[in-house]
Simulated scan of single mutants.
Amino acid sequence: MDSPPFADASALPWQPVAPGVERQVLAHDDGLMLVRVRFEAGAVGTVHPHPHRQVSYVETGVFEVEVGDERRVLRAGDGFVVAPDVLHGVVAHEAGVLLDVFSPAREEFLD
């Protein structure tokens, strides 16, 4: 099921993901999904792969980002791309928010 054409973030639930990490699905259809992920300082987005393409934007905070064999520290305004099935993860050096776009949509996020 597709989300409505407009996302009122104040009315959308946050889902716990891991200690100090929660996500909010903002909008989606079968082929595309926009997700906001909020991290407390020190929280970890565990290294993992998935079959979806992913583009992420650092809205706020400072993150150590690992994509494949590369690791970089990214700050607000920076971004990264993850190809399907590539290992990737983050560590929040400061509290912050990532905006993640997935193609196709992550159906497991809708359960």
Score class of each variant (00 low, 15 high):
V73C: 11
G96L: 08
G89C: 08
P16E: 15
L87C: 00
H52L: 07
A105I: 00
V65L: 09
G42R: 08
R53F: 06
A105G: 04
R36P: 04
V101G: 01
D2W: 05
D85L: 08
V47D: 14
L98K: 03
A41L: 02
M33C: 04
G68S: 02
V62R: 15
A9I: 10
L32Y: 13
V82H: 08
D2P: 08
G45I: 07
D69S: 09
V21P: 12
F39L: 03
G20C: 11
E107Y: 00
A76Q: 14
L99Q: 05
F102P: 01
H88V: 06
L26A: 09
A27Q: 15
L110S: 06
F63N: 02
S56D: 14
V81T: 15
A83M: 09
G77R: 10
H52W: 03
A83S: 12
T60C: 12
E22Q: 15
F63T: 06
D78A: 15
V67Y: 01
A43M: 01
R36I: 02
R71I: 10
P19M: 03
G68C: 04
P13G: 10
V86S: 03
P19C: 02
Q54S: 08
Q54N: 12
R71L: 03
V81N: 12
V97W: 04
A105L: 07
H52Q: 12
V67P: 00
V101C: 13
G45E: 07
L32R: 10
P19D: 14
A7E: 00
G20D: 11
F80P: 09
Y57R: 05
E22I: 06
H52M: 03
R38K: 15
S56H: 09
F109P: 05
E40W: 00
D78E: 14
R36D: 13
G96D: 03
H28S: 06
L110W: 01
P13W: 09
E70V: 04
R23T: 02
P49K: 11
M1D: 05
L34G: 10
M33S: 05
G68E: 01
Q24V: 08
R23G: 07
A76Y: 13
D78V: 07
P5C: 01
V21E: 03
D29L: 00
V44K: 11
V101T: 15
R23V: 01
R72T: 13
W14N: 13
D8C: 08
D111A: 14
H48S: 14
F39Y: 15
A105N: 01
A27F: 02
E59A: 15
R38D: 14
P16F: 08
E108G: 02
T60N: 11
V82W: 11
P13E: 11
V55W: 15
A92L: 08
Q15A: 08
P4W: 00
G20A: 11
S10N: 13
H50D: 10
D30F: 07
S3Q: 03
R38G: 05
A41G: 08
G68I: 04
L26E: 06
H28K: 02
G77F: 12
R23E: 02
F39E: 06
G96K: 09
L99I: 15
M1L: 03
V55K: 04
S103L: 06
D111P: 02
R75M: 10
G77N: 10
F102S: 00
L32V: 14
T46C: 00
F80W: 13
D29S: 09
V90F: 06
A83H: 06
R53C: 04
V37S: 02
E94P: 01
V65K: 06
E59P: 05
